[in-house]
Write a protein that binds this DNA or RNA. Structure first.
Lengths: 338, 338
DNA sequence: TTGAAAGCGCTAACAC
DNA sequence: GTGTTAGCGCTTTCAA
């Protein structure tokens, strides 16, 4: 590998016949430089193809101009057919791009990678860290925050850390309650649910919403737990069907699981929504294309990403207006499946 | 924001009662340190929660231990329902994780972001750069390579750069020829194609394969060009149908476009494969679940990612065994649609 | 085996 | 306005 010498400030300074400080000023856009000198410097920069060494710059400024987004999941999970993470990333990208910050995406599905990420952040590789989908009571956000590293989470943290971390979340419970009420409204009474993983707020809150609405109506709960994947939706639906072959509706805590449930129901000979009404949660594009199109609780995932990124930008820029919590609304989208 | 002072080598050295050099040796796993001293240092590191400052380290080592993967697409394209990029990323992740390198993902769909990426790489933020899906004759890979930055591409570069960049690709033409021959074998004679974008090797080569096979059989070409998205597949299928309502087969250059074509054909009242046989290219998971399941040319996308990452690791480690080009095989997977 | 010292390339006081 | 200077935190000769 031919690592051609990259020109330094020093080289540019010599060529332009000025001091390093002056070159630095020009490169960083200081206005207190005479036009003639500025042009000379710019020309030297051009001729030499000079690009500032980021390590040297970071060493003195203590800034890297990049922000990490941690996805505590394996890469295969992040990039499965579940469109959740992609949507978050998209939202984050848009905001960071606008602020000219570099996004550093990190998957941390294993304990080892979880550690790598921790060291990475602590090594000052990034100016701030955003977390996308947290499992259990992950100590990492709090730990980083305690070190003075700006941290933001998407999804309300499960345990209130001693040092509270700003977060953005959606109104899970409101959305689910609306969904269940809709099922009640169309005359369903044997309403089951496929819940999400119970080590995540999204899984817990959506189950709470279901329970709340069912108690309100004086009906019996019927719960199977999945892990947000299509496959787990299939399995869970089979269990629910085995337990209560006469169920007439199911609220499923994610669209991917709902697609699995749809398939399982069809395989079991049920008509949708004739025999069983199905409602999902997410509103992915494929949910409009499924057979039948899926009624679902829409959550603004891209907006979550954008909001989280804006909170982060507020923190790293030391602006005071960073809200400790933002809760975005959800909305029931009625299609053919319920 | 409370940026608590992070401990430095100096602090650890003082606490352990040794010199900075010794701490550095311990931290970097040098064997030439007395056991007693080593333990004392490790204890001090532990107590202080010391993590080396990466900027300082990079400044002297000229290494960052991270590798960029550039996706010359917008974030919304990368994270659409097209599973191509996710699969590449997955393959890359696996290898980089194993080598303990940090993956830095960069989307560069706009000219502005293209520039950002260039400066980022030139600023020495990463030890090497991988490109995922190139459009046209992008000068960036060659430019970076000329600066001595290790570069690898997935997809054969469109113009042979003066400084050749190692790449990995798949056997597009072989796969497409097999697909068309299969169509011929089941008696189809009015075989159209929906081609991919003609500014990408994958688009060009697959069209070449189609043309080759059709000429071989002495049949007339029938081409519509899409951009690999489902939507473009729908449009292209409509055009083909308008031009030749009697076509009895279509080879589609990507699974996403093939799904669009399937939908367009059904909307036009064609039965599949009865009236029109359809073959795609990719073999995404959803292609097994479509109606009917899609016959397709499987390309090993995850392996492309892995291979590209391994080539990169070879380059940054100055190992000599980096092949200039790797071409992975493709394979026709026959399902119900053809 | 350990320490002293030089310096990676840059920014930011501070002086002029 | 511009130059001088002092580090940022680390690795790595070179001596001891």
């Amino acid at each position: 590998m031919v690592t051609r010498e990259r020109p330094t400030l020093e080289a540019v300074a010599r060529r332009a016949g000025v001091s390093r400080a002056t070159v630095s000023r020009v490169v960083n856009g200081s206005t207190t430089v005479a036009v003639g000198i500025r042009d000379a410097v710019n020309q030297a920069v051009e001729e030499l193809g000079y690009v500032p060494n980021q390590a040297a710059r970071s060493l003195v400024t203590q800034r890297t101009e990049s922000i990490a987004l941690i996805l505590p999941e394996t890469a295969s999970r992040v990039f499965s057919d579940d469109m959740f993470f992609p949507a978050v990333i998209r939202g984050v990208s848009v905001e960071l791009e606008a602020a000219d910050k570099q996004l550093v995406l990190m998957m941390a599905g294993s304990a080892a990678s979880h550690d790598r990420v921790e060291r990475y952040a602590m090594a000052g590789h990034v100016d701030g860290v955003m977390f996308a989908s947290m499992h259990g009571a992950d100590p990492l956000p709090g730990a980083l925050a305690r070190l003075g590293i700006p941290v933001v989470c998407s999804g309300r943290p499960m345990t209130p850390a001693e040092l509270p971390v700003p977060y953005v979340d959606v109104d899970h419970i409101g959305g689910v309650v609306a969904a269940v009420r809709h099922l009640l409204g169309i005359g369903r009474r044997r309403i089951a649910t496929i819940a999400g993983p119970q080590d995540m707020i999204a899984g817990i809150d959506r189950l709470t919403g279901y329970r709340t609405a069912l108690q309100e109506a004086g009906l019996t709960e019927h719960v199977a737990v999945g892990d947000f994947t299509r496959e787990s939706g299939i399995q869970a639906m089979h269990r629910l069907l085995a337990d209560d072959p006469g169920l007439d509706a199911v609220f499923v805590a994610s669209d991917m699981m709902a697609h699995g449930a749809l398939q399982a129901l069809k395989d079991a000979g049920r008509r949708i929504p004739g025999d069983v009404a199905v409602i999902g949660f997410d509103d992915f594009e494929i949910s409009r294309l499924s057979d039948p199109p899926l009624t679902t609780v829409r959550q603004p995932i891209v907006d979550m990403g954008r909001t989280m990124a804006r909170q982060m930008l507020g923190l790293v820029d030391d602006r005071a207006d960073v809200p400790a919590a933002v809760v975005l609304p959800t909305e029931l989208v009625v299609r053919a499946s319920a």
